[in-house]
């Protein structure tokens, strides 16, 4: 099964969206480009047989974080389609530095011989071809390696799972939620303390 055409579509959309975020001056269009970019990144994840990551990307990133971002855009735009101009000099400098950085990374990527890694993979994980990684990820979280990994990692001793990071992340999320709510609320009390807002 050849995924090459699909890869090109998603890769072009991803890169185009990312570049669109940089060159667009309108903040809402930037947000839209970002949606396109992150959404097609989810497509790349599906091509990489990481269904669960792709779905999470769509649900949490595109459906959650970006909605939050657009919300922020709406709440902070002082006028409709307000733009903050960047001077041409800054733009030029940014583009030059960006292209330089990109070329450095690109040459590094090209220089490395990735085929050896590829060969190692096909020997090690013949069963990793399907995208149904949800169960395997769940098992991996509690420290049970997927079937095809057992042989590979035997030499490294007992590897722990990701339960502790997982728990830390969940507590962190709770703290963040409370903190964000507090931050967003405190200023409102100051702002309409005199008018006595209904909240």
């Amino acid at each position: 099964m050849s995924n090459q055409p699909l890869f090109w579509i998603f890769a072009l959309l991803t890169c185009g969206g990312a570049v669109g975020v940089v060159i667009s001056q309108n903040i809402v269009r930037m947000a839209f480009s970002l949606i396109v970019s992150l959404g097609s990144t989810a497509g790349l994840f599906f091509l990489l047989e990481a269904d669960f990551v792709g779905a999470t990307q769509l649900l949490v990133y595109v459906g959650g974080t970006l909605v939050l971002l657009i919300f922020g855009v709406m709440l902070t735009a002082s006028g409709p389609f307000q733009q903050i101009r960047v001077s041409p000099g800054e733009t030029f400098l940014g583009a030059a530095v960006g292209l330089l950085l990109l070329s450095v990374i690109a040459f590094t990527v090209i220089d490395v011989e990735w085929d050896t890694l590829n060969a190692a993979r096909t020997e090690a994980s013949p069963g990793a071809e399907s995208g149904n990684t949800a169960r395997a990820i769940g098992l991996r979280l509690v420290g049970i390696p997927a079937d095809h990994e057992i042989g590979v990692h035997e030499g490294r001793g007992g590897r722990t799972g990701y339960l502790l990071p997982f728990e830390i992340v969940s507590i962190h999320l709770l703290v963040v939620l409370v903190g964000a709510a507090y931050l967003a609320r405190a200023k409102r009390r100051v702002a309409d303390g005199s008018t006595g807002g209904e909240n």
């Binding site: 990551v53 993979r121 991996r140 997927a146 590979v152």
Partner: peptide, 28 residues
């Protein structure tokens, strides 16, 4: 593409979740 297994996917899941948290605080 490497024999490292699913760890990469799990790390990317953490990144997604932490990015959501970061966005919430940064927006506040």
């Amino acid at each position: 593409y490497t024999p490292l297994g699913l760890d990469g996917q799990i790390v990317s899941l953490f990144v997604i979740v932490l990015a959501a948290a970061e966005a919430a605080v940064a927006l506040a």
